[in-house]
């Protein structure tokens, strides 16, 4: 594995952390690899000597105070059975409360799901606009050229101009669409993780 691959994977594995922290870790491991290379190792050996990305990331996330699923790997070592010692009353309440908390939980999930679906439908329609702008640009260019060749030069030029404008607009739209899609995917992943993290902790308490 090259240093760049390693740092890229590390960055991806730490993506739940604040950006400043990610940069700090990436700088640190980048320096460590460079120093090993300066010390006479090959890049691949230096990367291998630093360790496995997933192990490093698990350790880093384990050091951070509990946040969703980050603390999970640390738990088994500590006091695994503590949460199971719940009083009978609490268990009874949880069972009796099932008709109340289960529909609430499901409706929360449904709300989350509908927000995500509507978010993505907006994004899909933006992509549709993007595609149609491209279609407009291509079709306009062909039609404009055809009109110009057939003797209607001013009309042909005007159509070509509109086509070029659409093409320009679609380039800008492409960046916007890409950024929005990326953002939406990240938000979705985060909210699902948070939701199921909540659920996991609840399960743990039972």
């Amino acid at each position: 594995m090259t240093k760049l691959d390693f740092l890229y994977e590390l960055r991806a594995a730490l993506s739940t952390l604040p950006r400043e922290d990610i940069e700090r870790y990436v700088d640190y491991y980048s320096e460590m690899i460079d120093d090993r290379v300066d010390d006479g190792m090959s890049e691949a050996d230096a990367v291998a000597a630093v360790g496995n990305v997933q192990d490093i990331a698990a350790r880093i996330l384990g050091d951070i105070p509990p946040k969703a699923d980050a603390a999970e790997p640390e738990r088994p070592k500590g006091e695994p059975k503590r949460e199971n010692k719940l009083s009978g009353l609490a268990i009874l309440l949880i069972i009796l409360g099932f008709p109340i908390w289960f529909p609430l939980l499901m409706s929360a999930f449904a709300v989350l799901l509908s927000i995500i679906v509507s978010l993505f439908s907006v994004i899909i329609s933006l992509w549709a606009v993007e595609v149609s702008l491209w279609g407009c640009a291509l079709g306009g260019l062909i039609a404009g050229c055809a009109a110009a060749v057939c003797g209607r030069l001013p009309a042909g030029l005007a159509i070509c101009g509109v086509a070029l404008f659409s093409a320009g607009l679609s380039v800008f739209m492409l960046y916007a669409c890409k950024a929005l899609t990326k953002w939406a995917v990240r938000i979705t992943a985060k909210s699902f993780l948070a939701f199921f993290g909540l659920f996991k902790r609840k399960e743990g308490r039972i």
Binding site: Y28, E31, M32, D35, R36, D39, V50, G51, I56, R59
Partner: peptide, 19 residues
């Protein structure tokens, strides 16, 4: 000193890694 040198200096006495 810097990170890698600290590791090299300390490692003979006590196990230490980057992480």
């Amino acid at each position: 000193s810097y990170g890698y040198k600290i590791i090299k200096d300390v490692r003979p006495y006590i196990d230490i890694s980057e992480s």
